[in-house]
Computed example of a mutant assay.
Amino acid sequence: MPRMPGTNPWFDSFARCMEELEYEATWTLNLNYNLNLDLNEEQKKAGWKIYKTSTFGRFDCSNCPNSWSSAHVVILFHYRLRVKPSRGSVLLRPFRQQCRNCWRIPSMLKPQVKPTQMQQVFERLISKILKNCYMQPVEADERNLLHRKTKPHERTLCEACSLGMCSNTGTFPCKRRRCNTCPFISPLRDIQGPKDSFHVTKPFTCTSANLVYCILCSKCDFLYVGETERRLGDRFAEHLRSVRTRNPNLRVACHFNSPSHSESDLFVLGLQQCSNDAERKREEKRIIKLLGI
């Protein structure tokens, strides 16, 4: 299989790996930063398939000296084989990450992946191609995930997480010292109301801001949906204070001071990330109506 020329290292690595396939089909690779985890009916009929994986990578900010390594660089493929003519197509989307120091001028940075890691990514893809396109039996190959010291994955700065394409969606403790919200964080991604349910597709932590959030009770079906421009932890601290001071004028405080209830039954999670006040208030009303509360 002829090697695909090009300056992009993904193309060169792909060509080297595909040369080892003993099939006549010519396989080509293209980058596409609009790929997602869904296929429409037309794409399914055309034979497209999806494969998602992850690898190690490095990011260098172009706006400041900051750089970091990540063990969670998400790679998404769409691929298909056409019989007549015998031609295979692969679309690749390497997901980007944002510099945590440049949040005022946000820009998504492309990952730098070493050739050895690229080769392992394509070897896993080829196993999928052999199995799903050529119907060739493939032995399960367990990944050898070597330990590498990297900073914790910051879900709010990951493009894949923000689009709901990581398994790491939901609300997570920020793990800051002396954070009073972390013990009350709920990992739930599906909230069931009297009328309908809401599925969380974004990542949140105690430090997430400008969002719609939910407070729920572990003992009953109580739900409270609110919105805040501030950090989730700061807003939740007010709710917790109202419970501890037994404020009789606030719904959350009244519920968790009712018989057989206490603050140990109280949990909080993020529901929807917003960009401004109007969107936040609109989403709050929409979710309340959807859940039927």
Rank of each mutant, 00 (worst) to 15 (best):
S127T: 02
H239L: 04
E154D: 14
P187E: 08
T116G: 11
H199Y: 08
D221P: 00
C220V: 07
L250K: 14
E229N: 11
C179K: 04
D190H: 05
G233L: 08
L232A: 08
R230Y: 04
L223F: 04
S127Y: 03
S162P: 00
T205I: 02
R251M: 07
T171V: 09
S127C: 13
K219D: 11
R251Q: 14
C206H: 03
R176H: 12
C179Q: 09
V225M: 02
V212D: 03
K149Q: 12
V212C: 06
K195T: 10
E159L: 02
T205G: 12
A160P: 07
C179S: 06
Q117T: 07
Q119L: 12
Q192T: 12
D141K: 15
T116W: 14
M135Q: 11
E227P: 02
V225T: 07
Y134D: 05
K175V: 01
G164F: 02
A237Q: 03
K219L: 15
L216I: 01
P194A: 08
E142L: 13
P111H: 08
L211C: 11
P111K: 03
P111R: 04
V200A: 08
G226Q: 02
P115R: 09
G233I: 02
S107K: 15
K151G: 10
R189T: 15
S186N: 11
S218K: 15
C217S: 12
R189L: 04
R246C: 11
S167F: 09
T150W: 02
N210K: 14
Q136D: 00
P111I: 01
P137D: 03
R124T: 15
H153I: 05
L145W: 05
A209Y: 13
N168P: 00
S197C: 04
C217R: 10
K149W: 13
V243W: 08
